[in-house]
Computed example of a mutant assay.
Amino acid sequence: MRERLAHPQPLRTLAGAAAFSPFYFHQVFREITAVTPARFLATLRMAEARRLLLHSNLSVRQVGARVGYASPGTFSAQFGQLTSTPPSRFRTRARALGDARAAGASWWSRPHRQPYGGAPAMVLTRAPEPGSLVCACLMPAGSLRVHRGRWAPSTGLSRVSLTKPPACGEYAAFCMVIPAGTRIVDALVNDVPGSLHIGRARLSVSERPPPAVRAELRRPAPTDPPIAALLPLACPPDAAGPT
């Protein structure tokens, strides 16, 4: 997927590369990564698009073509839907971050409501170091569609609040930690090794969600979806432009 972002990658072709039937490949892929092949590919494309928007002067149309979108409108719509920010605005905000580093602030995210009653928590194997930026999200299993407001910034403790599941079903919970002193764009755009740690867990909701799920805090693996590509960016307080 990573080597052919600009090319069509139908399920049958991907399954053939793994020597599986399309049905079995789809099942195994989702079991390992927590998302479907199509969602994983879409997020890889968004991650590369974010890097190009930050580091190149390519137009939005050209960036979309580089990551496999023949239609500029489709690219902009998909980018905005997955990342909650249009491509041009993301470029402005990412460049405004400059050399800003994690220092326990939460201005990178929109103001959020406190977790509703009955919302579960993610308990990490170890607490993030003081001053880290910590956030978590909950999404339906197999999907990477994070609804606006579903990101829940945290305080850096080992217990991270999640949002309340909207309905019964299977969910994937993700936690992202940007260590103190790390450049924020390195973690959220540049994919610099060591700039981001994640926790991932499954959550099954029947009548009510469990009070907590446990997750190992670790560096991202190749089989982890690039979840950082879905986190909305906001300008730092002293930067120009809307937040």
Rank of each mutant, 00 (worst) to 15 (best):
R2H: 13
Q9S: 15
P10H: 11
R12I: 10
R12L: 09
T13E: 14
A18R: 07
Y24H: 09
A38N: 01
L44G: 06
R45M: 12
M46R: 00
A47G: 05
L53V: 06
S56Y: 09
N57H: 12
G64N: 04
T74N: 14
T74M: 14
A77E: 08
R89H: 07
R89V: 15
R91S: 03
R93N: 00
A105R: 06
A105V: 06
P111Q: 02
H112S: 13
Y116S: 15
G118M: 04
A119S: 11
A119H: 09
A119G: 10
P120E: 12
M122F: 05
R126L: 05
P128C: 11
S132A: 15
L133P: 00
C135D: 04
P140Q: 10
L144T: 02
R145S: 09
R148C: 05
R150A: 12
R150E: 14
P153E: 02
T155C: 09
G156Y: 05
R159M: 10
L162G: 01
P166N: 04
P166F: 11
E170P: 00
A172D: 01
M176R: 00
T182A: 08
D186Y: 03
A187N: 10
D191W: 13
H197G: 01
I198T: 05
I198Q: 01
G199E: 01
A215N: 04
A221P: 04
L231C: 07
L233Y: 08
P236A: 03
P236V: 03
D238M: 10
A240Y: 03
P242V: 13
P242E: 11
T243L: 07
